[in-house]
Design a protein around this nucleic acid. Structure first.
Length: 581
RNA sequence: CGGGGCGUAGCUCAGUCUGGUAGAGCGUCAGCUUUGGGAGCUGAAAGUCACGCGUUCAAAUCGCGUCGCCCCGACCA
C-alpha cells in the first residue's frame, strides 16, 4: 500500500482560530483540517475527518451486528403522504425539508425513519416466527433546525445510525431495548467516550420509556441532573426533584396584607422591594392549555418546565398567555398575577406544598400581597411536579442531592409501543391465530455528533487527542529534515515496516520547518508520533512521543515496530479501563 | 421568529466615527539562506471592500434595502 504522505494529502491545518467557531471541538475540527463549511449547518468532510468518521461508523456497525441487528439502507426522500398517515407531518412540519419533483409531487427529506421502516415491516412481516426483528441503517438525516450551531453538533444534515426493533410481546420488546442499551454502552466506550445515561423525555417521538446517552461537556446543549449518592440521572426536561424541608418564612399565621408595589413586575424587583429571597415569592404564570386559561404556580426562584406541566395537565397544547388574556383572567396587567381569588384552574408545583408567609401578585395593578398561606388563601386545583430541578435539590429516589451538568446527546433509545405499527399496519399473526401490532423500539446515534463529542472530550490547548479506535490514523512518522538523506531513508523504511504490520501511518515528509510539523502533529492529534531526525539516528534510536501524556521515549531502531504496537495496545487498554471506573 | 454582533486578500484583522480612490501579520508563488517546537532576507501574485439602490465632484466609509455568517433566546427526535 502506498504510504499516506502528508504532502500528497489534503489536511489543511489552520494556524489561527476561524471566526466561525466558538467551542473547542468545532475550532479543532476546522483547524486540524478535518471539515470545511459550505453554509450554516452544512459541512464537507475532508479526508482525515472522513477517516475518523468511518472509524466511528465501523464501531457502530460491529456492535449493532453483534447485537443481532440487520443493516439496511432506506431512502432519504420520502413521499409526503406517509408522514401524513401518522400525523407527524404536522408535528414535525417546522423541521421537515419539503420539496417537489417535476410532476409536482410532494416529497420530504427524511428527518428520521419510523414511518418508512414500519411501512417496510408492514409489507414483509406477517408471522410471529419472523420476530423479533431489528433493522438499522447509517444514513444522512435532514432537519431544518431552528438554529444550526457548533459545527457538526447541530447541523441541517447529519449522519445518524437509526435502528428499529419489532417484537411480538412486551417481554421481547424489553429485551430488544436492553440489547440496544448494552450495545450503546459498548459503542461509546469503544469510541473512547465517557457517557452518562439519563432518563429522558420522549418528545415528538411518542412512546413510554427512554434513555439518553450524554457526553458530559460544558458546551453541551442539554441540561441534566445526577444524584451525588445513587445512580439517578435525568435530562433536565424530565428530571424530578424534591425539597427536603419546606421553607420557613416570617409572617406565618398573619392575615394576608396588600402592599403597593408600583411598577414592580419581575421576581427580582419584587423580592428586592420586600428584602426577601426570591424563593419566598410565588410566581404565577398564566397559560392557555387546549384553549383554556390555567394558572401555573412555582416558587419565585424556579422556572416552569413546560414539558412537565403539559404532561401534568394532560393537554395537547400549552402556550404562555398573551398580555390581553392575562389581564382578562387576572384583572391585572402582566406582572401582578397571583393565585388568591383566581377564577381559573390553579395548578401549583409540588415544591409549593405547605408554602406559608409567601409573597405573590394581588391580581391588581401595582400591588402584591404578603403573608400568603397557599392552602388557606387560594383554591389550588391540583399539585404536580412541573418546575425545573435545580442544583442542590433532593434526589427523588434516595436521600442524596442533585447536581446539574451539561451534556451532548449522542444516543437516544425509546420504547415506542404500537403507535406506528398500528397506524401503518405492521401486524403479525400470533401462534394463537390472532392479528396483533408489532411492539416497536427505536434507537438513534448521532454519528457525526459523536465524532465531534470525542474531540470535545479529548483535547488540550495544542489540539486533538484521538482515542486510538477512532483516530484517523494510528501513528505519525515525522521527518524532521527532509534534506537529510539518512533521515529520509530511515523514515521511509520505518513507514514501510509499520504498514507491513497493518498500522495506519501518516508520514509527514513536507518541506516544512520542524516546528511547523510538530505543531501540526499536536493539532491533528494522532495517538503516537515518531520523530525521525539526526539526533535520534546518531543513537540508533527513534524518538516516540505519546500525544496523550506528552511523554517522549527513545526507542532503539530494531524494536520500534514492536514498541509501537505495544504502546497502541496500552493506550487502547488504558482508555477501556478508565471507562470501567 | 425576537435580541445582539459581524461581512475588507486564502486565514486573522486594521481602516468606517471625521468621505479623497486599498492596508498589516500569517499563508501562497519565485529565489537565497536555514533545519528539533509555527525561522530570516529579497521579490511577486492576490481584494467588483457581501450585494443593490441612493446621497455626493468623490463612498469600504453616509442613508435605505437585500443576502450571508456567528452568538443569546424561543424550539428540538
Amino acid at each position: 500500500m502506498e504510504a499516506v504522505r502528508w504532502s500528497r494529502q489534503l489536511i489543511p491545518t489552520l494556524r489561527e482560530v476561524p471566526q466561525e467557531a466558538e467551542i473547542p471541538s468545532h475550532q479543532l475540527l476546522l483547524r486540524a483540517g478535518l471539515i470545511r463549511k459550505l453554509g450554516a449547518g452544512l459541512y464537507t468532510f475532508l479526508p482525515f475527518g472522513l477517516r475518523a468518521l468511518r472509524k466511528v461508523e465501523r464501531i457502530v456497525r460491529e456492535e449493532m451486528n453483534r447485537a443481532g441487528a440487520l443493516e439496511i439502507l432506506m431512502p432519504a426522500l420520502h413521499p409526503k403522504e406517509i408522514w401524513e398517515q401518522t400525523g407527524r407531518f404536522e408535528v414535525l412540519k417546522d423541521v421537515i425539508f419539503k420539496i417537489r419533483d417535476r410532476q409536482d409531487r410532494a416529497l420530504v427529506l427524511g428527518p428520521t425513519h419510523e414511518e418508512i421502516v414500519t411501512d417496510l415491516v408492514a409489507h414483509e412481516v406477517s408471522s410471529y416466527r419472523q420476530l423479533p426483528l431489528n433493522l438499522y441503517q447509517i444514513q444522512m438525516k435532514f432537519r431544518d433546525e431552528i438554529r444550526p450551531r457548533f459545527g457538526l453538533m447541530r447541523a441541517k444534515e447529519f449522519i445518524m445510525k437509526d435502528a428499529y426493533s419489532f417484537d411480538a410481546d412486551d417481554a421481547g420488546a424489553d429485551e430488544s431495548y436492553r440489547k440496544m442499551y448494552d450495545a450503546y454502552q459498548r459503542i461509546f466506550r469503544r469510541c473512547g467516550l465517557r457517557t452518562k445515561i439519563v432518563e429522558a423525555d420522549t418528545g415528538a417521538m411518542g412512546g413510554s420509556s427512554s434513555h439518553e446517552f450524554m457526553v458530559l461537556a460544558d458546551a453541551g446543549e442539554d441540561g441534566l441532573v445526577e444524584c451525588d449518592t445513587c445512580s439517578y440521572a435525568a435530562n433536565l426536561e424530565r428530571a424530578e426533584s424534591v425539597l427536603r424541608a419546606p421553607p420557613a418564612f416570617e409572617g406565618v399565621g398573619r392575615a394576608v396584607e396588600k402592599v403597593s408595589t408600583p411598577g414592580l413586575r419581575s421576581v427580582e424587583e419584587v423580592s428586592g422591594f420586600f428584602q426577601s429571597p426570591p424563593s419566598r415569592l410565588i410566581k404565577t404564570l398564566i397559560y392557555v392549555a387546549d384553549g383554556q386559561p390555567v394558572a401555573a404556580l412555582v416558587p419565585g426562584n424556579r422556572d416552569v418546565n413546560e414539558i412537565k406541566l403539559r404532561r401534568a395537565l394532560g393537554t395537547k397544547t400549552l402556550i404562555l398567555a398573551d398580555p390581553v388574556t392575562i389581564e382578562r383572567v387576572t384583572g391585572a396587567p402582566v406582572g401582578f398575577a397571583g393565585p388568591v381569588g383566581l377564577k381559573i384552574p390553579v395548578h401549583a408545583d409540588l415544591k409549593l406544598r405547605g408554602y406559608r408567609g409567601a409573597i405573590t401578585g394581588a391580581n391588581q395593578a401595582d400591588a402584591h400581597i404578603r403573608h400568603v398561606d397557599l392552602e388557606r388563601d387560594a383554591r389550588v386545583t391540583a399539585y404536580a411536579d412541573f418546575s425545573y430541578a435545580m442544583e442542590g435539590d433532593g434526589c427523588p429516589r434516595c436521600p442524596g442531592m442533585l447536581r446539574t451538568r451539561r451534556g451532548i446527546e449522542v444516543g437516544h433509545v425509546f420504547k415506542l409501543g404500537t403507535k406506528y405499527s398500528e397506524l401503518l399496519g405492521a401486524m403479525y399473526l400470533g401462534a394463537d391465530g390472532q392479528k396483533k401490532p408489532c411492539i416497536m423500539g427505536c434507537y438513534g446515534i448521532g454519528v457525526t455528533r459523536t465524532l465531534q463529542a470525542v474531540i470535545e472530550q479529548s483535547h488540550d490547548d495544542q489540539g486533538i487527542i484521538w482515542p486510538v479506535p477512532v483516530a484517523p490514523a494510528e501513528v505519525e512518522v515525522l521527518l524532521i529534515n527532509e534534506q537529510h538523506e539518512a533521515s529520509v531513508r530511515a523514515a521511509e523504511k520505518l513507514v514501510a515496516e509499520l504498514e507491513e504490520v497493518g498500522l495506519e501511518v501518516l508520514y509527514d515528509e513536507r518541506a516544512e520547518r520542524p516546528g511547523v510539523k510538530f505543531k501540526d502533529a499536536d493539532l491533528l492529534g494522532l495517538p503516537l508520533r515518531i520523530n525521525v531526525g539526526e539526533r535520534g539516528l546518531a543513537k540508533g534510536a527513534f524518538e516516540v512521543r505519546v500525544r496523550q501524556s506528552g511523554e517522549t521515549l527513545m526507542i532503539p531502531m530494531e524494536s520500534i515496530v514492536e514498541s509501537i504496537c505495544a504502546q497502541l495496545a496500552e493506550l487502547r487498554r488504558a482508555r477501556g479501563a478508565e471507562e470501567q471506573g
